[in-house]
Amino acid sequence: MSGRMNWRGIAAIYRFELHRFGRTFWTSLMTPVITTSLYFIVFGSAIGSRMTEIDGIPYAAFIVPGLIMLSMFQESIFNASFGIYMPKWTGTIYELLSAPLSSLETVIAYVGAAASKSMMIGLVIFATAHLFVDVSVAHPLAMLGFMALIAISFCMFGFILGVWAQNFEQLQVVPLLVIMPMTFLGGAFYSVSMLPEPWRTITLFNPVIYLISGFRWTFFGKGDVAIGYSLAFVAVLLIVCMAAIGWVFKTGYRLKK
C-alpha cells in the first residue's frame, strides 16, 4: 500500500466499475442518445416549431441543458446505487469490508467511477444535441465544473440509495418516482417565468429548478434563478450527501452487522 491512502484499492474498484460499464457500453450510451434524439424530435421539432423562443433563446437550444441534466440525474443515481448494491446482492461485499480500505477511499472509488460514467453520458448527449440544434456554451469551464459537481453529488445520493435499498424495486423507486417528476417539473422544458402564480412560487420549492437553472446559466449566461443560489444549492447537496455517507460508514448501516 502506498502512503496513507490505498490508491491501488481505489483504482481497482474504479477500473472494475468502468469495466462493468464497458460490458454494456453500447446499451449504456445508445439509450441516452436515442432518448435524447426522441426528446428533440418531440419537443424540439414538434413543440419547438410552435414555441420559437424562451427568453430570447431558440426553444430547441433552450431544452439542451435540461435534457443533459435529466439524463445525468438518472444515470448518476442508477450507476452509483447499482455499483454498491450489486456487491450487497451477490455477497461480494465481504471482500470490500475485509479490504484495507477506508470509507473515504470506498466512496472516492465508487462515486468517482459512477460520476465518470455520468460525465461521459452527459457529454455524449451534448454531442447528440449538436446533431439537432446549434447550441453554444457561454461558459465552457463552468459547464464542465457544474456537470462534475452535479454528477458527484447525485452519485453520492445514489450511493446512499444503494446502501439503503434491500431489493431492486427500492433501487428504482427514487429515480423513477421522485427524481424524474421533479426534473420534469423543474424547468427542464420550460422557463419558470412562463408559469402563472401560484405555480411559479411553488416551483421554487423544487430543488431541481436550482440545478437546471445553474446549468442553463453556463450555456446562455441566464437562468430562472441567480447562479449564486444554484451554486449554494449544489454545495448544500454535496454537504448533506457527504454527511449521510459519513454516518453510513460510521454506523455500518446496512453494510456491517
Binding site: 502506498s2 483504482a11 481497482a12 451477490t90
Partner: peptide
C-alpha cells in the same frame, strides 16, 4: 463471486483492493 468476470480479472481485482 462476480459471475460475469473472468477468473484472472477477479483475482487481480482482489490483489489491487488490498493495495
Amino acid at each position: 463471486t462476480d459471475a460475469f468476470e473472468p477468473v484472472i480479472s477477479t483475482v487481480r481485482f482482489t490483489r489491487g483492493l488490498f493495495g
